[in-house]
């Protein structure tokens, strides 16, 4: 079926959807610019920032660790099985390391943060909006952008790279455990192969991705919360849209970053 055969109404709604998506991206970009503008101007709410550090960083550790260890283990099994087909099963340590550090670590941590942190930020701020707490902040001469958005976004930007670093290490450890316990790799040489193979740019790219994903995840949560509709339904759709948008933007940003940093 050619595109011309599509009914006009379907085309129109496709056009409208595209237009709406572009408009949303524009509004999010403006919101991001505003956030950056406020980050560098006082006052800075330290207590809110430390709470956000706990929420975004520390309390996400279990989820990140579990995700990474299972993924690292599965990755080792797949590479071993795949490598066997052309007698290249010895490359498991190298490929696990590069796969975890360059791609899977940042992406999985980013998505877990979108699920855990973006949703809770969006729901919390949307509830505050719906119950007029945001209006109350304003009347108490406190800028909601500075009080709510800046601490969370800054915490995301600073802690998610650390989470990604932890995720990378635990992921490699997952691969190591499976390889040495189940696939018969030698421990010392597995570690040596991993360490020799990984280069500084691999690690740096991983952390840069983490910072960008942390920024996206927290910013999108705040944006949808602040722009929530009215009532319980408003909170529900703000949360849903925040998680969906954050996940897609993280994956898109990952592609762009990978192309920029590794695409020759």
């Amino acid at each position: 079926m050619s595109v011309l055969a599509l009914p006009a109404s379907a085309l129109a709604s496709l056009g409208r959807a595209t237009f709406n998506a572009l408009a949303a991206i524009g509004r999010i970009a403006i919101y991001a610019a505003l956030t950056l503008w406020h980050i560098v101007r006082p006052p800075f709410y330290r207590r809110e920032f430390f709470t956000a550090l706990m929420q975004v960083g520390w309390l996400s550790l279990p989820v990140v660790g579990l995700t990474a260890i299972f993924t690292g283990g599965a990755l080792a099994l797949q590479i071993y099985a795949g490598g066997q087909r052309f007698s290249a099963e010895a490359v498991v340590p190298q490929i696990v390391a590069i796969g975890m550090v360059r791609e899977l670590g940042p992406v999985l941590v980013g998505l877990m943060i979108a699920a855990r942190v973006t949703s809770s930020i969006a729901a919390e701020i949307a509830t505050m909006k719906v119950t007029e707490q945001i209006d109350a902040l304003t009347t108490l001469s406190t800028n909601p952008m500075k009080y709510l958005t800046v601490p969370r976004v800054l915490a995301g930007f600073l802690t998610v790279p650390l989470l990604v670093g932890v995720g990378d290490i635990i992921g490699i450890m997952g691969g190591f455990l499976v390889s040495t316990e189940q696939l018969g790799f030698n421990r010392a040489s597995y570690i040596k192969n991993t360490v020799d193979f990984l280069q500084t740019p691999d690690v740096v790219s991983s952390l840069i991705k983490g910072a960008v994903f942390g920024f996206i995840a927290t910013l999108i949560g705040c944006y949808y919360g602040m722009n929530s509709g009215r009532g319980a339904q408003g909170v529900g759709s703000a949360t849903k849209n925040a998680v969906a948008t954050a996940s897609i933007l993280i994956l898109a940003a990952n592609f762009v970053l990978t192309s920029v940093m590794f695409g020759s």
Binding site: E132, Q133, A136, L137
Partner: peptide
Amino acid sequence: DAFLARFGMLFQGGALF
């Protein structure tokens, strides 16, 4: 800031943090 500093407001729903 100067404007809002002159005001106090009780919201209909309380709007407590």
